[in-house]
């Protein structure tokens, strides 16, 4: 098995995995970063969303080859003390029910607001459409993204 160097949350680690191993399982099983969730394994639900060089991507659909030399950020590294404006907004609005999808939702929202700090209602809906919340907290996710945009602006 090849050895890969990957940079996650500012730390470079060395992992030995087969070439087809998705980043998701390297994060969860090898690096103990279990905040990134497995939901579908085919890039459909968004629970595994991480930032790759600042862009929200599905870690279940990325191999280590594809993230070589890139900087990966997971929910554990989004902020030092859980106080990223998006996390603060999630808290303020009290978004989660079961909470399982929320790390992915937060990562999607954080990358989106970085690109578009003052989004319209429609743009928020489009940006968050790829992340499934089975508890259907969509109204609150929407409010929290709006709130985060306000707080960041």
């Amino acid at each position: 098995m090849p050895t890969y160097q990957i940079e996650v949350n500012g730390t470079t680690s060395s992992v030995d995995v087969s070439t087809d191993t998705p980043l998701l399982w390297v994060l969860r099983d090898h690096l103990d970063l279990v905040g990134t969730k497995y939901g579908c394994g085919i890039g459909q639900c968004g629970a595994c969303t991480v930032h790759v060089d600042g862009t929200a991507m599905r870690s279940c659909a990325l191999t280590l080859e594809q993230v070589q030399g890139k900087s990966i950020r997971t929910i554990e590294g989004l902020s030092e003390n859980g106080d990223h404006p998006v996390q603060e907004a999630w808290k303020e609005v009290d978004v989660p029910q079961c909470g399982y999808c929320q790390a992915g939702q937060i990562m999607t929202a954080a990358a989106f607001l970085e690109q578009n700090p003052a989004p319209s209602e429609e743009e928020i809906k489009n940006a968050m459409h790829g992340n499934i919340c089975r508890c259907a907290t969509y109204n609150r996710i929407h409010r929290a993204v709006e709130k985060a945009a306000e707080n960041m602006g």
Binding site: G35, I75, G82, K91, D94, P96, A103
Partner: peptide
């Protein structure tokens, strides 16, 4: 608020 909110939003 949900008593587990801090743990949920930090993964």
């Amino acid at each position: 608020r949900n008593v587990d909110i801090d743990d949920i939003i930090t993964g």
